[in-house]
Structures are given as C-alpha cells and as structure tokens.
C-alpha cells in the first residue's frame, strides 16, 4: 500500500503528465515516471489515481487502450498481446468470422499500425489480426478531443488467429471488467471536478446583490449531484479492490449517471457562460457523453443489473464489514 506522502507526490506528477502540452504518447511519458513499477507495486491505487485525475483534468491521452490490452493479455496468459489493440464493439456493425474470412468493425483509441488487433466476433470468439490489414479512420465524436478510430476490413481466415470457447469469454469479460472499473474512476473524476467547480462558481457570481450560491434552488441542485458522486466514488473504489465483474458493472452504472447528473446540475448553475467555449465546462460535458457510452452506458448497465437480478432471483451484496 502507498502511504499518503507517496500518493500526494504521485498525484502531482500525474497531474503534470496529464496536462502538459506534447505529442509524446502518454505511455512513454509515464515510463519516465517509473510508472510500471508504481503499477506493479500497488496497481489498484496507481490506476485509480491515474484515471480519476484523467477525469479531473479531462486529459485526452489514451490511458485506457493499453490497460484493456494488458487486462486481456493477462487473462489469456499471452504477454505478446500486451502490445495489442483491443477493438471495442462498433456502433456501426458487428465483427464476424464466416467460412473464409474475418469482417472487422471495431472502435479503438489509438491507430494499431502493425500491432495485433483483438476483436470479439459473433459475440463469443476472439480474433487476432495484424492492424496493418485493416483500414483505420478517425471518427468525429461528441468529444472531439478524445480520439476514437473505426477499424474496418475483411481479412482471409488464414491470416487470423482465433481464440474460442470459455477461454475467449473469460478473457473478454476480464477486459470489460477492468475497463469498466477504470472508466468508472474517470467518470467519478469528472463528476467530482464539475460539482466542486460549480459550487465554487456560485460563491463568486453575484446577482440581486448576493452570490447566486445563496439560492436554495442552486444549492439543492449541487447537493443532489454530490450525493450521487459520493456513492459512485465508493463503488469505484470497491470495484478496484474487489476486481469482480459485478462490482465493476454497478460502479460504471452509477458513475455514468453521477457524471451526467453533475453536468446537468452544474450547467444550470453556470448560466450562459457555461454554454460557451470560453469556459472549461463543455469539455467535461462532452467527455461524459463519450465515456458513458464505452463498455455500456449507464442505462443499459442498469438494465443488465436488473435482468440479472430477475433471472437469477438473487440479490448479491457488495462489500462486507
């Protein structure tokens, strides 16, 4: 476990790394910090801190992509896949493997160049194909700054490595669980930032001769958001420590909702200025929309939870005393 001083130092360096203006990939800059050792030492604290700060600073660096690959490589026991790019489900269509060929449609955060790409095909198997065999197009997104690319293409089956059965599902689920946890941390970072900034703004902006934060209508908006944010933060922490699929599912569901609620309530506190590019708020709003969609938006995740409860007829408890 990291002590408080080490953690504070880590936060300061990470904040710097996440906000510096440079084209050097995040992984290389983290490397200079001795990041791999930090992660090896206390992965839960390290990654929780990185992703929460990434949300807080709306950094557009690709921290998620490498983590998804690491989780998948780890679950498959195949260290070579650490450098792979995981192709997430595309909203434009499925990837599938039929008799002679693999058809890919997937979303990634960094172009794969000639690294291997792993996609899920037909909702069960995994297919590994070299990135240079696919077409990579940058997507225009609600966010604009957090890059997303669509990978498409058809590749002869002979050039595809297929991973089948339980191994494939278990590994993919482990990757999804890891990703949901990290996204929950990032969404919590956004939600905390947005709530605190809006609360502060209402103390500075004067109307009717007094700070607008004295109006109960605005106080209650921010308080409502804060309550959900606290709940989301506890769930994200727990998901990190437990590492289990169910906790990560619930954590991401609440985090997505908390971030959206925080943005909605904060937006109203800012009035017109928050609706402009003169103010930082729009970055947080856009980022929330994009991150919430990754690995399941909060409404679908709530449905997933509900279906599981109804079908299993079992209501599990997260966290023991």
């Amino acid at each position: 476990m990291m002590d408080t001083d080490t953690l504070d130092m880590l936060r300061t360096s990470l904040r710097h790394v996440l906000t510096e203006a440079t084209n050097v990939p995040l992984a290389d800059r983290l490397g200079e910090l001795g990041w791999d050792e930090v992660v090896a030492d206390d992965p839960v604290t390290a990654l929780h801190t990185l992703f929460t700060l990434k949300g807080d600073t709306v950094s557009s660096a690709d921290a998620l992509g490498p983590r998804l690959a690491a989780a998948l490589a780890d679950a498959l026991g195949d260290p070579q896949l650490t450098t792979a790019t995981v192709g997430l489900e595309s909203p434009f269509g499925p990837s599938s493997l039929t008799d002679g060929s693999l058809t890919v449609d997937a979303v990634v955060f960094t172009p794969p160049s000639d690294n291997p790409v792993v996609v899920r095909v037909d909702g069960e198997h995994l297919a590994v194909v070299v990135g240079s065999a696919l077409t990579c197009t940058r997507l225009t997104t609600t966010d604009g700054e957090l890059a997303q690319f669509r990978l498409t293409g058809t590749v002869p089956a002979a050039q595809v490595q297929c991973i089948e059965g339980a191994t494939a599902s278990i590994a993919w689920n482990a990757m999804v669980t890891h990703g949901r946890w990290l996204l929950a941390c990032e969404l919590v970072g956004i939600a905390q930032h947005v709530t605190a900034s809006a609360a502060q703004y209402t103390g500075e902006r004067i109307q009717y001769g007094k700070p607008i934060g004295t109006f109960q209508a605005l106080q209650h908006r921010i308080a409502t958001a804060h309550v959900l944010v606290v709940g989301a933060a506890r769930l994200a922490e727990h998901a990190g420590h437990s590492g289990d699929e169910w906790s990560a599912l619930v954590a991401k569901a609440v985090a997505g909702q908390a971030a959206e609620t925080a943005c909605t309530q904060a937006q109203q506190c800012y009035g017109a200025i928050g609706f402009t590019w003169e103010h930082e708020f729009h970055h947080y709003l856009r980022r929330t929309y994009v991150l919430d969609r990754l690995l399941g938006d909060w409404r679908s995740l709530e449905r997933e939870i509900g279906n599981e409860l109804m079908n299993s007829r079992h209501v599990p408890k997260i966290g023991m005393l």
Partner: peptide, 19 residues
C-alpha cells in the same frame, strides 16, 4: 429491468457509503 437495476445500484451505493 432498468428500474430494478437502478434501485439495486442505489442500495449498493448506500451500502458502501454507510459501511
């Protein structure tokens, strides 16, 4: 499904917060 899932998620958030 969503209503139940939401209720559960809130109960879980309450559980960890009050824990």
């Amino acid at each position: 499904a969503q209503q139940l899932g939401h209720a559960y998620a809130m109960a879980a958030a309450l559980r960890l917060t009050t824990k």
